[in-house]
Design a protein around this nucleic acid. Structure first.
Length: 277
DNA sequence: AATGACTTCAACCGCTATATC
DNA sequence: AGATATAGCGGTTGAAGTCAT
């Protein structure tokens, strides 16, 4: 077994190590990962312990094939967020799929979906959401729908080609306040000025908007609507009835959150073409 | 049966964000 | 306010399994 410079074990976990880690978590609970190796009597680093627990040992982890519902949700959410370098993208997606981890979703995307979908994603099947008013706190940018519909001239994010510098530059940019500006002053709508810098900021604004969208659905404060009658059950907490209504009318939701339809042009099953398992 | 190519996914690495002092 | 410690993220790697020849 490989060891690093400090003599800490690396590589695949053994059954015995799994048992030790599980016992430790059962006894002390999750968190304080720096203490876990010592408490568990494991010669592993805290990162390794955390990862092993979160991605493999946790009792609610679901293993095996992703079902249609799960793939559908992954594709939809990735279509919404994937081209825009959303910070915590995989965590956000995984958070909506019970029992799946960010690592699972990321691996699944990279191995199953990315290859198949890449040649098929064009500017014509990019999402076209059309909310009117989203929340009391946050106003959608004035020209956000234009931004989302314009030809995708931003470089397509290919994880294989994208440098870690790029990733971290973007993450530090968006994560400071988790993608939201808490100062209401800064959320005021501004006149549209088409300087390159302003356009970039508007795209960021779009991303904050989507980040807000995801958080609100997570908190159960808002509801989005499904495109088709047969939207699978797992998608329902996010996409509930009325989603496909193209009439443009708004849908009343409690607490001042009003959405019109959210439209997706992507036929995800053509896109993914996976067999049932 | 042998072996080389390809695929999958668990694990690691490097980095940033956040918490604490 | 700055330094340090810890948590957690996305990108990447490589061993093991599978497939094709």
């Amino acid at each position: 077994m490989e060891k690093n410079a400090r003599g800490v074990r690396k590589g695949a976990w053994t059954k015995a190590e799994d048992i030790l880690l599980k016992k430790c978590i059962d006894k002390y609970g999750e968190g304080r990962w720096h203490l876990v190796p010592h408490r568990a009597g494991l010669n592993r680093c805290r990162k390794s312990c955390r990862l092993r627990w979160l991605n493999y040992l946790r009792p609610d982890i679901k293993r095996g094939y992703f079902n249609k519902d799960e793939v559908d949700l992954i594709v939809r959410l990735h279509t919404l967020l994937g081209n825009r370098q959303v910070f915590r993208l995989w965590s956000l997606i995984a958070g909506r799929i019970p029992g799946r981890t960010a690592n699972d979703v990321k691996n699944f995307w990279n191995t199953h979906i990315e290859k198949k979908s890449k040649p098929m994603i064009t500017q014509t099947n990019i999402i076209k959401p059309q909310p009117r008013i989203f929340s009391k706190q946050l106003v959608a940018p004035a020209n956000w729908s234009k931004e989302l519909n314009k030809p995708n001239d931003a470089p397509n994010i290919d994880p294989k080609n994208r440098s870690s510098t790029d990733h971290h530059a973007s993450s530090s940019k968006t994560s400071k306040t988790d993608g939201r500006d808490e100062n209401p002053k800064n959320n005021k709508q501004q006149p549209i000025i088409h300087s390159p810098l302003q356009e970039e900021e508007e795209v960021d604004e779009c991303m904050r908007w989507w980040g807000n969208l995801l958080e609100i659905t997570e908190n159960g404060d808002g509801i989005l609507f499904p495109q088709e009658d047969h939207v699978p059950s797992i998608v329902e907490p996010i996409f509930s009835p009325g989603f496909g209504d193209q009439s443009g009318k708004d849908y009343g939701v409690e607490d001042g959150i009003i959405l019109s339809c959210l439209e997706l042009d992507v036929d995800v099953w053509k896109l993914v073409s996976l067999d049932d398992h």
